[in-house]
Design a protein around this nucleic acid. Structure first.
Lengths: 199, 199
DNA sequence: GCGTGAACTGAACAACTGTTCAATACTCTG
DNA sequence: CAGAGTATTGAACAGTTGTTCAGTTCACGC
């Protein structure tokens, strides 16, 4: 963990913004609050990033780069990456909900990578065939991101110790079990859903 | 669909707040904006709800009641309920992320109801046994809520037509298939995860 | 009709917002 | 050392924020 003082002011501001934006939301965070966290004046924030919107975009790009840098290997790397960097996680969750441009790009990228990955698995026999490959990829990715976005709620009900890694692992394992063996032993719900859907 | 003018001013304000809070976030929404949407003065909003925070709590309670009223039968009823009421959905997603008291209560309630439901299914043989029943229930609920919270992203990649019901159904079906048959045909990922976890 | 209380309003207030600007401190190049 | 350019600041700005308040309109029981 790097200390706050050896970073350039610009980087300190960006980190402070990332944390504040993630914790309280962008609209609820003032430029002055970010400046105070970074130990600089509000004017300097604007000097470096032009405007609050510019600061937000800088955060977007930083998160995007950070995830792209770590996530080239496979999907699980992205998961580990996100588990490690809590402020990043929170910010990303907000960005996804607010529909920022960077978040939209990221979501699209991850979905497409996942769709290819699942198609490959299907060809090699370790992924079951799907009726709607696109919908499956989208749903799978949103499931991957769910504990991230709802991290506070999930963490609270699974022990809620500050070291979130343990609870994240517990949740990930439960998810993997459902995806491996299935949750339902027969297709009663699938049938019921189909029946309702055809109406 | 009820028209805006037959409602009491208080109800109109609450509905306007629900929509605005959900669309833009609470911090980004001003009391004056809500008042304008409801066709009243800003002072009247404060007269009825005391403060902006009071207005938020009223929204919380309203959402909680609306969901409780419809969701007593089983889980799928909650799903349909949420699909129908888009403004409610959006507001709930924000509330879950912000960790409001009502959202926390709701999440806890749903998890506990789900855990009992899954335990019953396990006893009756239509749900596969789980190593960690609690973690499974929490994860399952967060998966249920994922397309809700990430609705904009999911909708965009699955056609994005304004009638969101169609895409929601598509996503729900893909999810149900994964939960019924499983996604992975063998346990390679589960084994890999266990191996990493034990380190 | 009359009064009483609720619904409702416009104007005002202090605090805070993002942003600008002139001025100062700092760091490196020539 | 001179100077150019960057980093950094405090003070000020116009606009918006949540909230207050005195006053007006309205409906209804006596």
């Amino acid at each position: 963990m790097r200390s706050a003082s050896d970073l350039t002011a610009r980087a300190r501001i960006r980190d402070a913004a990332l944390a504040r934006f993630g914790a309280d939301g962008i609209a609820a965070t003032s430029v002055r609050a970010v400046a105070a966290d970074a130990g600089v004046s509000a004017a300097l924030v604007l000097h470096h990033f032009g405007s609050k919107e510019g600061l937000r975009q800088a955060c977007d790009e930083y998160v995007l780069d950070a995830i792209r840098a770590g996530g080239d290997a496979d999907i699980s790397a992205l998961g580990e990456m996100l588990q490690a960097a809590t402020p990043l996680r929170r910010y990303l969750a907000r960005a996804l909900l607010d529909g920022s441009e960077a978040a939209t790009t990221l979501f699209t990228e991850v979905v497409e990578r996942t769709e290819r990955w699942l198609a490959q698995g299907e060809a090699e026999g370790w992924v079951r065939p799907a009726a709607d490959a696109r919908a499956r990829a989208v749903t799978y990715v949103s499931w991957l991101l769910a504990p991230l976005v709802l991290g506070d709620q999930v963490g609270r009900l699974l022990g809620g110790d500050p070291a979130e890694t343990a609870t994240a692992v517990r949740s990930a394992r439960a998810g993997l079990e459902m995806l491996t063996g299935g949750l339902f032993a027969d297709d009663r719900w699938l049938k019921a859903f189909t029946a309702v859907d055809e109406r």
